[in-house]
């Protein structure tokens, strides 16, 4: 059967995690989830679901799934899944502290308009990030290509995070709780790598030159 890989259950001490395949359509996923749960109905009754992972769902889709879990199959949703915080008002202990050594996601393609990468760690992109694409990371963001879209490093409030790119030409740059935007008529397009970080409550961009380090 081909439908097995689209939905996976993982057991953790907090409860089950349902992982939905990112490349699968929502309707298909829903169908397969129902099929799977129906298949082992007795097994799942009373099970605790910690969260839903993988494919990002719209709030409607999400509530539909949660409704399904809670009401039709008698399982218990322990915690509602929450998207990454947009503005950061988190307490310090929740801030991602793995800037030097921490989980890192490698994205091995160019991100085109409409693509959004959200990750609770560092993100490295092996390609360009085009206008209209967005990266939101709790840690640092490194782009081995041109950054033309939006990047948000230290998204849950870590203002020590940095963003660097071979061509740093973002529509908008966010680090921690700071936001900077591209100047309106910019002809300044340096042909060398740059790095952006926070200094004195401001986003600072400087050339990335190895001999200075």
């Amino acid at each position: 059967m081909t439908l097995n890989n689209n939905i996976e259950f993982k057991g953790t001490k907090d409860g089950l995690i349902i992982h939905l395949n990112e490349s699968c359509e929502y309707e298909k996923l829903k169908e397969q989830l129902i099929e799977k749960l129906e298949h082992a109905k007795n097994f799942f009754i009373g099970a605790q679901i910690a969260r839903i992972e993988g494919k990002s769902l719209t709030s409607n889709e999400e509530s539909e799934i949660i409704d399904l879990i809670n009401n039709r199959f008698g399982m218990i949703m322990v915690e509602r899944t929450e998207p990454l915080e947009k503005t950061t008002a988190c307490s310090t202990k929740e801030v991602f502290m793995g800037l030097d050594e921490g989980v890192t996601r490698f994205v091995k393609s160019t991100l085109r308009s409409g693509k959004k990468i959200e990750f609770k760690g560092n993100v490295v992109v092996m390609g360009d990030v085009n206008p209209g694409a967005e990266i939101v990371a709790y840690g640092n963001i490194v782009i081995m290509g041109a950054l033309r879209g939006i990047a948000h490093a230290g998204a849950n409030g870590n203002s020590n995070a940095f963003v660097s790119a071979l061509r740093l030409q973002p529509t908008q740059l966010r680090i921690g709780k700071f936001i900077a935007r591209a100047p309106d008529n910019s002809s300044y397009n340096p042909k060398y790598p740059e790095i952006a970080f926070i200094r004195d409550e401001m986003i600072l961009i400087e050339p990335y030159l190895t001999k200075n380090r």
Binding site: K86, G114, P131, G132, T171, Q172, I179, R181, A182, D184
Partner: peptide, 22 residues
């Protein structure tokens, strides 16, 4: 939604923080 352009035509793309869906 998903193919936005009006912001680009008005030259306001770099000011977007929140959008209609938000």
């Amino acid at each position: 939604i998903g193919l936005r352009n009006l912001d680009v035509v008005l030259g306001l793309e770099n000011r977007i923080v929140y959008d209609l869906v938000d």
